[in-house]
């Protein structure tokens, strides 16, 4: 199994787009943390004007701890469902400095925001990635996925330059689910002549992987955007352990 490494990310600016619910944010956060483990000065901007919840600003604490600069609406605006475009983002794109990641909202509607930045991107600095989850409505066929990519290009007035596979079924994901997703991804890649950057595999699944490995490099994914009962279940048990060093009942 080939693993994806920060050295493989050659572009200064990486933009994650994709259809609604394809897992762009989860991928963008994991990708950013991977870069930040090797480099300093990594920045991520939350450009999601589509999703009201589960946006990368929700993982800002985690990323800031890793030395990442997070650019997202602050204060009360953090929780707004408004199309807020921060002026710093244009500066980030034009600055020619620092590794920069943009997490863009889903569907062509979300990608439209890139149109306003289209003139600022420098072609050889930009990797515009479409994240594809082959289990999502409307992108579960080659034709559906190709149409989504074309619509994103039209809305963003930019050319897509790479693909990322993020096919999963949450906790029910198996090696077969990943392989089936990669088959679809490779077919789309061949049809449109777009390279595959990596496919994601959950860390838990990676440990118990069975059968042939993915052909593309693998990014080991940790889920950060989780509903509270899953997130806290882990936190909860850790907290109890720390308090008394055992799982015995405390009264």
């Amino acid at each position: 199994m080939k693993h994806y490494t920060p050295a493989m990310a050659r572009s200064r600016v990486t933009v994650f787009t994709g259809n609604f619910g394809s897992g762009k944010t989860e991928v963008a956060v994991n990708f950013t943390l991977l870069l930040a483990a090797q480099e300093t000065g990594v920045r991520i901007a939350d450009l999601d004007i589509v999703n009201p919840y589960f946006r990368c600003r929700e993982a800002s604490g985690l990323m800031e701890k890793a030395g990442v600069e997070v650019i997202a609406p602050a204060g009360g605006w953090k929780h707004a469902d408004l199309p807020i475009i921060l002026p710093q983002i244009k500066g980030m794109v034009e600055s020619k400095q620092n590794r920069t990641v943009l997490d863009v909202g889903g569907d062509p509607v979300g990608a439209r925001i890139l149109g306003s930045l289209a003139g600022s991107f420098v072609e050889d600095e930009l990797d515009l990635i479409v994240v594809l989850n082959g289990n999502r409505p409307f992108t579960d066929t080659v034709d559906g996925a190709c149409k989504m990519i074309e619509d994103i290009q039209e809305a963003s007035r930019l050319s897509v330059t790479g693909l990322v596979g993020n096919t999963h079924l949450m906790e029910s994901t198996t090696s077969d689910v990943i392989r089936k997703g990669e088959d679809l991804l490779l077919e789309v890649s061949g049809k449109l002549g777009l390279p595959v950057r990596f496919v994601t595999v959950g860390k838990g699944l990676l440990a118990g992987w069975s059968g042939s490995p993915p052909r593309a490099p693998v990014l080991a994914l940790t889920r950060h955007m989780m509903p509270p009962w899953i997130e806290s279940e882990k936190q909860g048990s850790e907290v109890f352990k720390n308090r008394d060093g055992s799982t015995a009942a405390r009264r």
Partner: peptide, 19 residues
């Protein structure tokens, strides 16, 4: 609803501790 789902996890945690 959602709150019951969180409470279910809490019940599991507490029962593991013998409560």
């Amino acid at each position: 609803g959602t709150m019951a789902r969180i409470c279910k996890t809490a019940v599991d945690v507490l029962r593991e501790q013998g409560l």
